[in-house]
Simulated assay, not measured.
Amino acid sequence: MKAIVIFDIDGVIRDVGGSYRRAIADTVELFTKSYRPTVSDIDRLKSEGVWNNDWEASRELIYRYFESQGQNRDAINLDYGQIVAFFQSRYQGPDPDNWTGYICSEPLLCTPEYFQQLTDNAIAWGFFSGAMRDEALYVLQGKLNLPNIALIAMEDAPGKPDPTGLLAVVGQLEAPESPKPVIYVGDTVADMYTVAKAQQQDSTRTWVGVGVLPPHAQETTESIASYTQTLKKAGATQVVNGVQQLTPEVIFRLIAE
């Protein structure tokens, strides 16, 4: 093994612009009864680096809307359980045992052959995601048919930018006495902050953050430039338009720098 690459899933492996983010907008609109956040509104919230959990992001947008109307959030009666339940009814669908929601129509952003290419070049790989485990496996096993997955999901570790989950999945892939360089690939500020915090906790190896532009950020030249700058400011060493641009050759160059 020459290197380890850990991937976020949402916005990197699958396009969630019409699923998770749509569910955020639906949820905020329902609970405010008037405000539907735009893509830019959600991006601005995510750029703060602490709203990786989309249930919590939905609640925060609801709070901020009512605050903009002059209300104090301490006086706002929000039921977090109801927010989560409605969000999931949109994302998974109304029947949790038979998914028919937005998750069923998420476009893939990579192919199984990409991961085989990494394996063939002695690059170990795994996933650290804020998605629920069954939602992560839906794409990794159900759509990509990836075997022997090293995965840390929402249920397994604190949310990003806490690096516990990233460190844990790296630990699944290597012997501790032989630390290898690690690249973490994500599409948000929280992902890049996670890399920096992992470096603080484990300085025995090289850590590299690579940002990926999610599809919704590539619609205009301005959005590409803005999102790229946001990721670089958060610590991304390199930003790519799609995860498959992170070839073995690029990986080896990044860990050698």
Score class of each variant (00 low, 15 high):
146 L>V: 01
212 V>N: 02
253 R>C: 13
137 L>C: 02
16 V>E: 06
80 Y>L: 15
19 S>E: 02
49 G>W: 08
107 P>R: 05
141 Q>A: 14
119 T>A: 13
255 I>S: 02
49 G>C: 11
78 L>M: 15
218 Q>N: 06
226 S>I: 06
21 R>Q: 11
3 A>F: 10
144 L>Y: 04
144 L>Q: 07
51 W>E: 01
68 S>E: 14
244 Q>D: 02
9 I>R: 05
132 M>D: 05
98 N>T: 03
22 R>I: 07
26 D>T: 10
19 S>A: 15
14 R>N: 11
61 L>A: 09
85 A>C: 08
166 L>D: 11
231 L>F: 01
54 D>N: 12
225 A>Q: 10
147 P>D: 05
159 G>N: 14
190 A>W: 00
104 C>N: 14
98 N>L: 03
180 K>N: 13
20 Y>E: 06
135 E>H: 07
140 L>G: 14
194 T>Y: 01
241 N>R: 15
110 C>I: 15
30 L>K: 14
231 L>I: 11
20 Y>I: 10
80 Y>V: 14
74 D>F: 05
57 A>Y: 08
125 W>G: 02
108 L>Q: 12
51 W>A: 00
133 R>W: 04
142 G>Q: 07
114 Y>D: 15
45 L>F: 02
26 D>S: 04
256 A>L: 09
103 I>D: 02
30 L>A: 10
31 F>D: 02
99 W>F: 13
60 E>S: 06
131 A>T: 10
190 A>L: 09
231 L>E: 00
113 E>Y: 13
